[in-house]
């Protein structure tokens, strides 16, 4: 097995919410002890509901934020380095595509300028070379050369996302972190963008860390799936393992909640006991999922389950071997 391109070990991120007058400050564990590897040319999907820490993970891996604990190794180099040179190299190794194509493009800059900005700030080449690269990239992401001079507001959501993807690839990264790159788009456009992402992956040998809450998208694009819930890893394994044989009750609930079009009889829907999710400020003791878990027992209320290996995947549940 090859060494992973990116590996995260025990990532922890805590947000401090400062208290007002006469109030204590509160802490939110956005990410708690997350570890995983991303191998070259593969797609790792991170799924979870709102507030599960998906976007925090994206920001940390794309070096926009620093974790409060744990280590990230990008292509063999620790990100906690002080060396500007390594830092710069890591920046161009990991690039990000943002969720909202309406917010991620600077409205005052032409498409050409937007695409060239990464090269510009990295001090790459003379202006002419940068412009050539930008034009070549426009073609790669399915836009026309005359779009070079246009401004973001002249484009549709799908085209904007193409621009954003093109910009992310300008520094020839090895890893692209995509934070819900299609969730702001129409269904018909989603498919186009997903196809584009997969084509580019093949062409450039990219690895994706694909963040999504849409399981039907994940099923198409992912090689591996990591399920997050309130900043904790619930289950992590290959796509097939997760989709066809989920071992964590939370994963099963998620899958059951995803809408499907089929004439098969409805799958047995798990009975989620409390529909109200817990407050991020006061997470339940033991397993974070126990108040909503149909399989919860006494031990779940007391002891936090370790992440362990069960049937070719990692899972954090005391009863991973049991079926409901």
């Amino acid at each position: 097995m090859t060494t992973p391109l990116l590996s995260a070990r025990n990532i922890r991120r805590i947000y401090e919410v400062p208290g007002r007058l006469f109030e204590k400050s509160a802490r939110v564990h956005a990410l708690d002890d997350i570890s995983f590897d991303l191998r070259a040319g593969r797609t790792l999907a991170v799924v979870g509901e709102s507030g599960s820490g998906k976007s925090t993970l994206a920001r940390i891996l794309s070096l926009l934020e620093e974790p409060d604990g744990g280590e990230i190794v990008v292509a063999g180099e620790d990100t906690r380095t002080r060396s500007q040179e390594i830092r710069k190299r890591q920046r161009s190794t990991v690039q990000m595509v943002f969720q909202n194509p309406y917010g991620s493009l600077n409205p005052r800059k032409s498409v050409g300028r937007i695409m060239e900005e990464p090269l510009f700030v990295q001090g790459f080449g003379p202006a002419q070379v940068r412009a050539e690269r930008a034009r070549a990239m426009l073609a790669k992401v399915g836009l026309r050369p005359e779009h070079y001079w246009r401004f973001p507001h002249m484009f549709s959501g799908g085209q904007r996302q193409r621009i954003a993807i093109g910009r992310a690839l300008m520094l020839t990264p090895k890893i692209v972190i995509a934070d819900e790159p299609v969730s702001a788009l129409d269904i018909s456009i989603q498919a186009q963008i997903l196809n584009l992402l997969m084509d580019l992956q093949e062409e450039f040998g990219l690895s994706y860390l694909f963040i999504s809450h849409d399981l039907s998208v994940v099923r198409v694009i992912a090689d591996e799936v990591l399920v997050l819930y309130y900043g904790r890893l619930m289950e992590f394994g290959s796509r097939d393992a997760i989709f066809s044989n989920p071992r964590h009750p939370y994963t099963r609930t998620l899958l059951a909640a995803a809408p499907t079009i089929s004439f098969e009889p409805e799958p047995v829907v798990l009975d989620v006991k409390v529909s109200e999710p817990p407050s991020a400020f006061a997470l339940p003791k033991g397993c974070v999922f126990h108040p909503r878990c149909p399989m919860a027992r006494d031990i779940c209320r007391e002891v936090r389950p370790e992440v362990r290996n069960v049937e070719d995947r990692l899972v954090a549940c005391h009863f991973a071997e049991q079926r409901p």
Binding site: R59, S62, L63, L64, K88, R91, S92, V94, Q95, M96, F98, S104, L105, N106, E117, P118, V121, Q122, A164, R167, L171
Partner: peptide
């Protein structure tokens, strides 16, 4: 954020 992640 995009500018920042490009290293600006």
């Amino acid at each position: 954020s995009a500018s920042r992640s490009a290293g600006a």
